[in-house]
Design a protein around this nucleic acid. Structure first.
Lengths: 332, 332
DNA sequence: CTGTTAGCGCGTTCAT
DNA sequence: ATGAACGCGCTAACAG
């Protein structure tokens, strides 16, 4: 420790640079001056080796960078997580993990103690990554629902929106508006979020149009283009549909474009409801009726929960579901 | 080292887990089996302490998360950087650094040897971060131009597009098309990119409309909304303008919207040229004439250059400028 | 309040 | 081919 070259011993220097407890004013000033003069930077690798802490947590996105940078949802979540971490002086490390080889690398990275904990969003299928990281001893917070054995692991927590309830509210709103042939553009069916929103829709729509309402669905991929494509397929299958509930706002925007291209007016001919209430949903033409997810609050909660776990506290409940709310605008 | 519990000494185990050189088949297998059984994960913090290498590099974006997730430019760059790093088995760590306190944290993070090197894009003003990181002994690659003393530092390299030339080509194209009152929507003037594109425009436009062409400019912030706002200001100042060159595609899109809202046809009344040629530029209505920047190649080059420097090679030249190319489509 | 010592987990020399 | 010992830079625990 070069700073010790400035008068005192390494122990004293270390104390001075950290809290400054139990150090005389004189020594403290000498150390600070020396550190300044030498441009001293503590080696964080060494520090984390002895402390068992790195002071940084990861936000891993199991998604193509395409979607990461395209869907405002991720922007909102990262912003929320980031701002919460800053308050606790913790560094955010954003990492992509699309392919399984990248997930494997991520696992090595996290398990190798480069991180104190990990937040994972956009989990597809039953991704082994969360459980693997937890098995390596790191706390994991999942943004979204958790099923199966993972749910029981003490090191895994989650923050999810009440997707089923939200979806049901959306479709009930359409029914109240007199719509009968209500279609659904779903998200990728390997994601629990998608299946939950689908289930919420089916509960209500299955009771309309003589039960046929429960089959009128096409999957998309949460992107605008995939929403437009799904909408075209639905129109082909069922030209008479009078409403469509989309699993997110981006697909809703795509659906509106496709409807217009097909000569339908929104909401006169076909009503459209989205999910998320992302920034901008209120601006488009027409303004989008959608289910609001408190994304910012959820992001902060994920961060806060993770930090709690990093500090050895097990949150109770470990799995929280936050409320959503229907926001009625012009499109339905 | 727990793996040593499986028969051999720690040294042998270490050799077995790494190259496997100078280790008997028998010992090697024993160690591998033990590692597998114990779910052994090397502690990367310890490894980087002794090796002086972490195997990860940072991509820091001095930008709001808003823009990071909104401007497809960042998506393209990160994708390129990421893919190149993967080939070399290096972990990408994405980090935001908007405020100066976040930059300070980033500096501690990098200087603390959590990273082997750093790529910085979207540098505003003369950000002290690059020089500070370089001073801490880490190699830095800047995406964009470098001015002043930073340019001479051995540890700083850069990859930039020939913004002046590209801008000039765009404006010359407008002149050839018979346009005379050619306005410019600039980027934030604290960025060299913006000033370079502005200068390219001024070179040519300054010679049109009796010299008045060189003053008809308004700054934006590279976002669609700021492009629209700048366009409105320009129309107010100069209702007769017949063309506008925008410092990026996003602002060009915003400008087109504002022009239409003001009742001007594009390109009939006003021609519009952008910069970047981002995915989607060819799709909109009208398809955008723009200056193509080889973003993917630039991203890969940044990554490759950084890895070279991490390995002790100093690239020559240290500052490279890549060519851009005008892509003529419908909007001008 | 301060100096000393030990040890975090690893790769690597040097003997053997 | 292998084992023992050392040191990376740091903090914590213990003496003084």
């Amino acid at each position: 420790m070069v700073a010790a070259e400035a008068g005192v011993s390494r122990g004293t220097a270390s104390r001075a640079l950290n809290g400054g407890h139990s150090v005389s004013r004189h020594a403290l000033e000498a150390v600070e001056a020396a550190a300044e003069k030498l441009g001293y930077r503590p080696n964080l690798a060494a520090r984390s080796l002895v402390l068992g802490r790195t002071g940084s947590v990861g936000l891993v996105v199991s998604e193509t960078d395409e979607r990461l940078f395209t869907d405002p949802y991720f922007a909102s979540v990262s912003r929320a997580v980031h701002s919460e971490l800053l308050r606790h002086d913790v560094q955010l490390v954003l990492a992509l993990a699309q392919s399984s080889s990248e997930r494997e690398r991520m696992l090595r990275f996290a398990a190798g103690r480069h991180l104190d904990g990990v937040i994972i969003i956009s989990v597809h299928g039953q991704d082994p990554l969360p459980a693997a990281i937890a098995a390596a001893g790191l706390p994991v917070v999942i943004g979204g629902a958790v099923e199966g054995p993972d749910r029981e692991l003490d090191r895994i927590a989650s923050v999810d929106a009440d997707n089923r309830v939200g979806a049901r509210a959306a479709v009930e709103h359409l029914v109240r508006g007199g719509r009968r042939r209500i279609a659904h553009i779903a998200g990728p069916l390997d994601m629990i979020v998608s299946r939950d929103r689908l289930a919420g829709w089916r509960t209500v729509a299955g009771a309309t149009a003589g039960g046929a309402g429960g089959t009128l669905t096409e999957p998309g991929e949460f992107s605008e283009a995939s929403g437009a494509a799904a909408m075209r397929r639905l129109l082909e299958r069922e030209p008479d549909l009078d409403a469509v509930f989309c699993a997110n706002d981006l697909m809703a925007r795509g659906a509106i474009g496709a409807l217009r291209a097909a000569g339908r007016r929104v909401p006169d001919d076909v009503a459209v409801v989205g999910f998320d209430d992302l920034p901008g949903a209120d601006l488009g033409e027409p303004a989008l009726t959608t289910v609001r997810q408190p994304v910012h609050a959820m992001g902060r909660l994920m961060a806060k929960t993770l930090l709690d776990m990093v500090n050895g506290r097990v949150p109770d409940p470990r799995h929280v579901v936050v409320e959503t709310r229907l926001v009625v605008r012009d499109s339905a």
